[in-house]
Simulated scan of single mutants.
Amino acid sequence: MVPQFLVSVFMLASIANAHFTIEYPEMRGDSFATGASQYNYPCANVNQTSSTNRTMWPLTGGSLNLDLHHQWTYYFVNLGLGTDYPTFNITLTQQLLNETGIGTLCVPQIVLPVGVTISDGQNASIQVVTVGQSGSALYNCADITFSSTATTLSGSSCTNSSNVAVAVVQASNTTTTSHSTSTPSAASGKRSGLISTGGAAVV
């Protein structure tokens, strides 16, 4: 008979493998801990505290490093300005992105949208959302402080796993033709689908 503590370890490992973590900026807290759940909006039920860690981020936008545990996922990045539980009403990913491959995805710089005004020393929070095959969204957050002296990750500190790729998902109209045996004419229609660019497969 398998000891109960081993069953618990296996269950936790299975749960962890089905989720993701933010490696940089430093994640707000452990979203695998008791009481937390990455299924909970907006930040996996991981709350801010007086000792919340904040990573210095450049004024024009900084790096993002994710550890992803799904064969493929759509992902979004949002920004909320302010110190205490800001609203994530600024999208940092203007297009739908599809990541394929289990491993590390590092974006050297996510540039802030035009019109977003940032000041040196301003606090904010980053929300990363992933959506996989089940259609359920997963959430994690990281807290930052914008700084004029902060730099982005570069070189070996920001590399992707060899099997990880990202593609922009675009809407496409594909013409299909169906033949009728009762009439000499063919009926054609439009079918909406998804295609990708950049070498990553869309499922």
Rank of each mutant, 00 (worst) to 15 (best):
I110T: 11
T91P: 03
I126W: 00
V111N: 13
G115D: 06
D120M: 10
V116I: 15
L96W: 14
V129S: 12
V128G: 00
T104L: 04
I102G: 04
V114W: 11
N123R: 12
Q94T: 14
Q109E: 15
P108K: 09
L96K: 14
Q94H: 12
L97G: 02
Q95S: 09
T117I: 14
I102N: 05
G101F: 06
P108T: 14
L105D: 01
V114N: 15
T91R: 01
V128I: 12
I118W: 08
T100E: 13
V129Y: 05
T91C: 01
L112F: 12
Q127N: 09
Q122S: 11
I102D: 01
G115A: 02
I110Y: 07
P108E: 10
I102L: 04
N123H: 12
P108A: 07
P113H: 07
L97A: 06
V128R: 00
G101E: 06
C106I: 08
V107L: 14
N123K: 12
L112D: 06
G101I: 04
L105I: 01
V128Y: 00
I110P: 06
Q94I: 07
G121C: 04
T100G: 13
I126N: 05
G121Q: 13
G103N: 03
C106T: 09
V128A: 00
V128W: 00
E99A: 13
N123Y: 08
S125Y: 01
T93I: 06
A124T: 07
L112P: 09
L105F: 04
I110C: 06
Q109H: 06
Q109V: 14
C106M: 09
L105K: 01
